[in-house]
C-alpha cells in the first residue's frame, strides 16, 4: 500500500491518523484515494488541477510537483512547505 504521511495540522481530517494507506499508481490517484477516505483533505492539498502552490511533495523522498508522478506499491508520500533558495 502507498503510505501518505499526513501533516500534523491536517490530521483533524484523518481522525488523528498520521499515516493513511491507499492503493494508487500516481500521485493524483493517491490524493483522490485519500479524499475518498478523508473528505475535504484534497481541497487543502490541491488548487485547481494541481498541487497547492504553497506546497511541494516528496514521493519516495524525491521532490516533485507533478500530479502524474508514478508510484510504487509501497511508495511514501510527504507534503512539505514550498521553499526557496538564494
Amino acid at each position: 500500500m502507498v503510505q501518505i504521511f499526513i501533516p500534523a495540522p491536517l490530521r483533524r481530517l484523518t481522525a488523528g491518523q498520521a499515516q493513511v494507506a491507499v492503493v494508487a499508481t500516481t500521485l493524483r490517484e493517491a490524493i483522490e484515494a485519500l479524499e475518498q477516505q478523508c473528505p475535504g483533505i484534497r481541497g487543502e492539498l490541491c488548487e485547481n488541477d494541481g498541487l497547492a502552490p504553497t506546497l511541494q511533495v516528496a514521493v519516495d523522498n524525491r521532490m516533485t510537483r507533478r500530479m502524474s508522478t508514478p508510484l510504487k506499491a509501497d511508495s511514501e508520500i510527504h507534503f512539505l512547505p514550498a521553499i526557496g533558495g538564494g
Partner: peptide, 9 residues
Amino acid sequence: KVENLGEGC
C-alpha cells in the same frame, strides 16, 4: 493569486 515560481511562492 498565489503562484509557485519554482523557488517559493
